[in-house]
Amino acid sequence: MRKQHIGLLYTLPQILWLLVFFAAPLCIIVIYSFLKKGLYGGVEPQFSLEAYTAMANPNIVLVTWRTLKISIIATTLTLLIALPCGYSIARSRNQAIRLFLVIVPFWTNFLIRIYAWIAIMGNEGFLNDILRALHLTTESIQFLYNQTAVILVLVYMYLPYAILPLFSTIDKFDFTLLDAARDLGATKFQSYIHVLLPNIKSGLVTAGLFTFVPIFGAYAVPLLIGGKDSYMLGNIIADQLTKTRNWPLASSISMTVTVLTTGLVFLIAMRKPREQKQVFDVDPAFLQATPDGER
């Protein structure tokens, strides 16, 4: 009993921190989402489901779908790029240097890196300068302010979060298994699909979550890089909070995003360690019938 009390004491700072900075704000958002909207922002202390019914607004539904679509595309692209990156780092002789290069961008502020992309892709930006210098175009090409640009920058932003968990899983992978697969008749591609991928599934899932969850709540990238066609849920929440001043609606959308993403995480975490595909279908009775004496 005493020991348990001491354990509780050790975790007290953690618990306090989480209560004040996580649980309390979350509760406030939950409560706000069920209250009536105040006239000039804020809330009226009166129960209402208005904020949730208001989400049926076709505009919000559209943006929800778009957010989902952008998140899925960006996550898929990130994983497709991160997988070979992680693999090559894991198999390389100078892992430390390559990992360092992956982490280097973190030293620059998130927003500054977004502005860097604006500087590269803007109408008077680096890319257009080069194209003009090569006489490939006379007019500036509009690279920014569309979905493609948003996806590109999102992929860029979250690539390290996918490369790192993939690297650490692939680094533990026994590469002789690939030799074995080749030896048993698999082509190089087949050996990756049938042997490498199933054995690094946990790394893929982690990398996927690390990219999908933050991208689903993206705000700054679509705001600065995107245009009308790339408004995401994060932007709507901010608008409701600061422009339209509908705090309950901002809260209810936030709740939806939170529930959806935590739901996804739970689904994956709680999933039973899935049995491998049951291609094996020898009748147990058949096994039992084999007399023991024969072996």
Binding site: A180, Q190, P198, F280
Partner: peptide, 27 residues
């Protein structure tokens, strides 16, 4: 030719049956 590796190199994600079946599945 086929190889029996020093570390055996059995596929950890597959059952004994599927390990042995692997070359046949590929074919």
């Amino acid at each position: 030719c086929n190889t029996v590796f020093q570390s055996y190199a059995l596929f950890p994600h597959l059952s004994v049956f599927e390990n042995v079946a692997f070359p046949l599945r590929i074919r």
